[in-house]
């Protein structure tokens, strides 16, 4: 019963399963940096459930101020500019959730994440998803979906990739995928047995746990 209610609740708020998966990756009492932490919902969850020593970086000043007022340690900044000041290995986990596609230099950002953190959690929207492909192929229009609701001219997402593209980049920078989880539309976790080509077609987003 509880599981069913939880499943429904998760289905009603697809972002929550995303946070749940990430929370599952993080070990208790770890030092965590959440980049693009918004108002600090994930940090709060990690502090409550995993007793982490959490920090955040957030672009929007409003998000930062709300998070700090809630007692979280958050600074205003962005992934492209502000990672360079952090020393090597300063965190056990560095999390970049749904933000890589909005950075100017995703490869450099990913390298910085792997420099700062022992382990890196990255979640990406999958541009290889069949709905997105079909909008482009069948309609000849730039895709707009529930998760990616922007028009081509006003989107903050400037560097889209597919699951396959991302895995290739991870290989290129000599990083290792330790764990990966794919999520489809309503927030269901895809069966782990299903392999990459199918993920690339079906997943709406994928979450990776990486290390050097």
């Amino acid at each position: 019963m509880t599981t069913e209610m939880q499943r429904r609740a998760d289905a009603a708020h697809p972002e929550r399963i995303d946070l749940k998966v990430i929370t599952g990756f993080v070990t208790p009492r770890a030092r965590v940096l959440d980049i693009g932490c918004g108002d600090g919902a994930l940090l709060q969850r990690l502090e409550n459930e995993k007793e982490v020593d959490g920090r955040g970086i957030e672009l929007s000043q409003k998000g930062v101020n709300e998070a700090v007022a809630r007692g979280l340690s958050v600074v205003q900044g962005n992934a492209d500019h502000d990672l360079a000041t952090y020393p090597d290995n300063s965190f056990d986990f560095v999390i970049l959730s749904q933000t890589l596609q909005a950075t100017h230099n995703p490869r450099l950002v990913l390298e910085q994440l792997l420099r700062i953190g022992q382990k890196v959690v990255v979640s990406i929207p999958n541009f290889g998803n069949w709905r997105i492909r079909s909008q482009l192929v069948l309609k000849g229009r730039m895709p707009i979906t529930q998760d990616l609701p922007y028009s081509w001219y006003d989107t903050p997402n400037i560097h889209f990739c597919t699951v396959r593209d991302f895995v290739t980049l991870v290989d290129e920078i000599d990083a290792k995928v330790e764990k990966a989880v794919a999520l489809i539309g309503n927030g269901r976790v895809m069966n782990r047995a299903i392999r990459l080509p199918l993920w690339n077609l079906l997943a709406d987003q994928a979450i990776f746990l990486l290390r050097r």
């Binding site: 930062v64 340690s73 600074v75 205003q76």
Partner: peptide
């Protein structure tokens, strides 16, 4: 590597 918040 200090614990820092920054609000403008």
């Amino acid at each position: 590597a200090a614990n820092v918040s920054f609000v403008e």
